[in-house]
């Protein structure tokens, strides 16, 4: 039997004469945490809180004395932490997940090291140099760790490096070029992660490496930038590549909807229609910027969402029936 959850007890209680004692018993025995769960929780919580609060306390202690510390002590401390965490990741005693967490911590410490270095020596380096160095220096660890949260940090660093390059070095680039580039970069990351999953799935050598939540975050990122790129075309009179951009967005959305339908992934079937609704709203606001336009836009938003939700419910029902 499927395990009883709290929804089951709520539903049954609503349409029966289930009494309070029986309900409490069901919650205690079927839903709530038992002794074993609490033992596990206490073990993990004591260790996590113990380590994190002590570390935080030590960081606060050094922050108090930071100005008086010699520059070699400041850099030495962070270097020692980087070396310590990296060596720790080689230890055979720790499990693979802990190893990946430790390498992630090391990758973050590299960034802190560069920040402190820049602060001490006032090198005059701009943010672009900082993020570029950080990205390059952790590349090997990211590939070796093969840990989705670390991949996400890495992709974020690449985005930031590109953004600051555009802002501080390539100052003649227009906003349109920057936004479109970020849209293309994030779409490429999304496609690469899906392809990597497909190749590995087919080769059956290794389990899928990029989980659903990871590809959903990349999808959100790609759709966000595509929406901003399209908004720029709608509201700006200075767009130089409207047809190319809109064509790329149309291809991405059509492929995304097809993929979402084929793989039964609601995220694609929710985010993409949401973006389209936003863009149509923006178009209405541009064309009819009077009170009637706003009223039409308001009504359109609500009714478009109703239609999309209804369609999605129908699609989900079809999927369930097919299962």
């Amino acid at each position: 039997m499927k395990k009883i959850n709290s929804d089951d007890i709520h539903i049954v209680s609503r349409h029966s004469n289930l009494n309070a004692d029986t309900a409490e018993q069901l919650f205690q025995t079927q839903v709530y945490r038992n002794k074993e769960d609490w033992k596990m929780f206490c073990k993990r919580a004591l260790l996590t809180l113990g380590v994190s609060l002590t570390l935080a306390g030590i960081i606060f202690f050094f922050a108090y004395n930071w100005a008086e510390l010699h520059k070699f002590v400041k850099l030495g401390l962070i270097e020692a932490l980087i070396i310590g965490t990296t060596l720790c990741s080689f230890s055979k005693k720790i499990n693979p997940l802990s190893r990946q967490f430790v390498l992630t911590a090391a990758a973050v410490l590299v960034g802190i090291f560069f920040a402190v270095y820049g602060q001490i020596y006032q090198t005059g380096a701009n943010a672009y140099d900082f993020f570029l160095a950080w990205t390059l220096f952790i590349t090997l660890w990211v590939i070796l760790a093969n840990f989705p949260p670390l991949w996400l940090i890495y992709i974020l660093l690449i985005n930031l490096t590109f953004y600051f390059y555009a802002e501080q070095v390539a100052v003649d680039w227009s906003s349109e070029v920057i936004i479109n580039s970020l849209f293309i970069i994030n779409t490429i990351f999304l496609i690469c992660s899906l392809l990597a999953n497909k190749i590995l799935e087919n080769s059956q050598q290794v389990a899928v490496i990029f989980p659903n939540w990871f590809t959903t975050v990349l999808l959100l990122s790609a759709v966000s930038f595509s929406t901003i790129a399209a908004e720029y075309i709608i509201f700006s009179n200075e767009s130089n590549y409207p047809i190319v951009t809109l064509t790329l967005i149309a291809i991405l959305y059509a492929s995304g909807l097809y993929y979402g339908f084929k793989k039964r992934n609601s995220s694609y079937l929710t985010l993409i229609p949401l973006s389209i609704i936003i863009l149509i709203n923006s178009f209405f606001i541009r064309e009819m910027d009077d009170e009637i336009g706003l009223l039409i836009t308001s009504a359109f938003s609500i009714f478009a969402v109703i239609i999309v939700v209804k369609s999605l419910l129908g699609i989900q029902k079809t999927w369930k029936n097919e299962e």
Binding site: L49, T54, L55, G57
Partner: peptide, 9 residues
């Protein structure tokens, strides 16, 4: 922070 941290450890 250190006191509860060390206590927990």
């Amino acid at each position: 922070l250190i006191i509860p941290g060390i206590l927990a450890l």
